[in-house]
Write a protein that binds this DNA or RNA. Structure first.
Lengths: 228, 228
DNA sequence: TTTGATAATATGTCTGCACATAATAACCCC
DNA sequence: GGGGTTATTATGTGCAGACATATTATCAAA
């Protein structure tokens, strides 16, 4: 039996031993040094494999105490969150969007709190309907802090696409929830009022300055997946 | 200005340069070797920092082509998905659960397909209501393949907790969606019929054998967060 | 002009070593 | 025994060097 070579094969071998219950949940597995000796590789290579598995929540590691198989599956799933256009095009549909309205206003308290704004400060609000093959797929409600942008956005291109190419991206916060469609949302998304909508909310900073807070209401049927 | 030391400081420095638009979206940043020379460290240390950022979707790396700042923010957010008991206790509430019913039956086609079962194969179904401070917080609908378990589950402890301690965990699939509460679900979760519920679905294999498929319907107000 | 072989190059990975750090175990003294 | 100090130990991080590999650029032949 050829020993695993390369950190990916070692990771697979460790997973296999957990699957086969050689190493049970809660049990301590051999030290990096022992595994390196068994597999005939350097400790750093074993370390890399175990670190990845710890990052995925499969193992728990502590100095001196060693490495053990995780008992409580606080899984760390990794999500891909693409921009809507790519998501639509990835399904083989034609993407489009329509600007519903645009205004300058004081954002609701929840948004102001998320962005860390002084009360009463005004922001620009854009509401955009995203279309897949002409049918609405998501309603975007974006509050944008134009004051901190390095240059004013052009009027002729998608605000989204301009933003991602222009301002830096260090998402501070993403959250997901389910909400019933308001009459307004239902109308725009062409769905019955009260339908269950999947909501994505993102708040973005560039360094210290809050840039934008977006709420995406996805049309019914939307599903967010992770693959491990 | 002291140069960053350690891969975490280097990661922070790279992020800062992106934030400050020194390196703009789409632009190629210096090579690992150049950065290592600038920061006065080994290439491996820079490599570690850049690899982490690429894993988070901030950078895109290709051999020979180099490293560039990601343009389309296919962000890779990392989610923590704890077991419900820990989630409830983490909020400082008292956890409890109640087994609603248990049966052996042929699962609906969607579940059978997810698990890759032959049509007509029977599984065990457990429905459990999870409680926080006595109030329902989530409804669990679990289909379990008892045949592949190494030993039959005991009757006196929580099936969940026994499962995670006994069988290996290699989640194959997790998905999130929003659905309207059925009358049955609404009754159990003490919420109006048709309320928007946040749904988590997980399917688990141990090696080749499908173990279990779980559908969790969270009571209204549930929110899944990521921290970057 | 196109095609195909070849060279150049940046990242990907590995090794072997060293030291830092956190957490446990061992010990000693009262 | 109890409590506090010290030693031990496994992981975490770092470095320098080497080779592997994917991809691009270059250049010659058809």
């Amino acid at each position: 039996m050829r020993p695993p070579q390369g950190w990916e094969e070692i990771r697979a071998e460790v997973l296999r031993r957990i699957d086969r219950r050689d190493w049970r949940p809660g049990a301590t597995i051999p030290t990096e040094e022992q595994l390196a000796a068994e597999f005939g590789c350097a400790r750093a290579t074993v370390s890399r494999a175990l670190r990845e598995l710890a990052g995925a929540g499969v193992l728990e590691r502590r100095r001196k105490a060693g490495t053990r198989v995780a008992t409580h599956p606080v899984r760390k799933a990794t999500l891909d969150i693409p921009v809507i256009r790519l998501e639509v095009e990835g399904r083989g549909q034609a993407y489009g969007f329509r600007l519903i309205d645009r205004a300058t206003a004081v954002p609701p308290p929840a948004v102001a709190a998320r962005l860390g704004l002084a009360p009463g400060q005004r922001l620009d609000r854009f509401r955009t309907l995203h279309l897949a093959d002409g049918r609405p797929t998501a309603l975007e409600d974006r509050w944008l802090n134009l004051a901190v942008l390095p240059e004013p956005p052009p009027a002729d291109v998608s605000l989204n696409e301009w933003l991602v190419k222009t301002v830096a991206y260090t998402y501070g916060d993403i959250s997901f929830s389910a909400e019933a469609a308001t009459p307004d949302e239902a109308l725009l998304l062409e769905t019955p009022a009260g339908a269950a909508l999947f909501i994505t909310e993102r708040t973005t900073w560039a360094g210290e300055a809050p840039i934008t807070s977006v709420r995406l209401a996805h049309a019914p049927g939307y599903r967010l997946r992770t693959v491990v």
